[in-house]
Computed example of a mutant assay.
Amino acid sequence: MQLLLAPMEGLLDFVLRDVLTRIGGADRCVSEFIRISGTLLPERVFLRYMPELAHGSRTLAGVPVRAQLLGSDPVSMAENAAFLATLGPEGIDLNFGCPARTVNRHGGGASMLQDPENIARLVAAVRRAVPAHLPVSAKMRLGFDDRGLMRECAQAMVENGACELVVHARTKADGYRPPAYWEQIPLIRAAVGPQIRIIANGEIWTVQDALRCREQSGCTDLMLGRGSVADPGLALAIRAAVVHGVPAADSVAPIQPAAVPWAALLPHMQQFWDWVCQRLTPNQRAGRLKQWLNLLRRRYPEAETAYQQVRVMTDQTLITQWLALQRCQQPMSAGVPAPANLGQ
């Protein structure tokens, strides 16, 4: 079983990637999408989105990170992919799933799912442009407005060089509204053949969700997004359930407590805050912690109180003092590393 951390613009960036991979359970990450819009991007842009390129394309915890590109022009995508390949990424992933209105208005992301022929041209151009040993994968949704072209789109990706597909089991029109239609993924599997790794994604918040997803999708491998942000120990808990042979039929059992207790999470939250203060501009810092606490409320009762306390804070010093107080009230063992330089 492979468990991947999803690319999530403005949320699962290099700071949170490193924190979550330190907690453990993930086999690989995918960077936030790097938008390609007709120009050859300089090295500093790739490093800004993916500082891990300066560390062997791995988080400081040692987990590989694959770079994701988003664009619609085959020539420009191929040129940028070729340059990116010289920076040593673990692989290159192509985004055919972003539902953002701005992205789709400019012909990128999920809007590409309306044109399998352009998908074919783009994937083929990128595959030709990068060394043969470098994996080229793709992430897709079930379609744009409907699922009518999902098989053709998947075939266009695979037949032109994609070695792996992540399938977010919703259309662009579905957005992020539950449910995810995991039962549609076997239709894509049948269309592309068994030799291609298919990874299921979408609406996996708990171990129970993961077990149902594996059963309905027929996929061994999963990609975790907001579920891992809300429950940083989710990947570890899924692994434990699979190792111990928990059957999918038991997935209707009550939701278990988060795998990482709140007190054990606080040092990681401190690490996250230290790196946010080191790497992000002052106007971004408080919002990033509030964003994470907001999602943590789904799995941690303590996060509700924490969020209500922090949501009115804007001063970095006050938030730092607040975090120190939380850790004093719930002592934890040492061992969380000091902030590190993740690149320029």
Rank of each mutant, 00 (worst) to 15 (best):
L94V: 04
Q216I: 01
Q329L: 15
R285I: 13
A286I: 11
E304Y: 15
N201Q: 05
Q155V: 15
P261E: 13
E117N: 12
I238C: 08
R127E: 09
F272I: 02
A110P: 08
L122D: 06
E183H: 05
S111G: 07
T317Y: 07
V312T: 15
Q329R: 14
R327T: 03
T206L: 11
I185M: 02
I196R: 08
T171L: 07
R177K: 15
A132L: 14
H133E: 10
G56W: 11
S137W: 04
G143Y: 05
L342I: 08
L266T: 09
V207Y: 03
V312F: 15
Q270S: 09
V126S: 04
F272R: 02
G175D: 13
D13A: 06
R327M: 13
Y307P: 13
A154R: 06
A259D: 13
A54H: 06
I36L: 06
I198K: 01
L70K: 01
G227V: 05
M157P: 04
L11K: 10
G108N: 05
L165Y: 02
G175S: 07
I34W: 03
G109K: 02
P232E: 02
V158T: 12
V192I: 14
H106A: 14
M1C: 00
Q284G: 09
V246W: 01
C29M: 11
F272S: 04
V45I: 14
I92G: 03
I185G: 01
F96V: 02
L187S: 12
Q291E: 08
W262S: 13
S57T: 04
M223G: 01
L11C: 13
I196N: 01
P74W: 05
M77G: 06
Q329D: 08
P301H: 11
V276Q: 09
H55I: 00
C219T: 01
R127V: 10
E304L: 14
L224I: 12
L142V: 06
F83R: 11
S57C: 11
T220S: 07
V243P: 00
E90I: 00
C328P: 00
L295P: 08
G24N: 03
C213V: 07
L47G: 07
G25Q: 06
L318A: 15
D93W: 03
F46K: 02
L60M: 14
E164V: 02
V130R: 04
E164N: 03
V126I: 05
A82L: 12
A334L: 11
V19S: 01
D18R: 10
L342H: 09
L20Y: 01
A306F: 14
R28M: 14
Q68E: 10
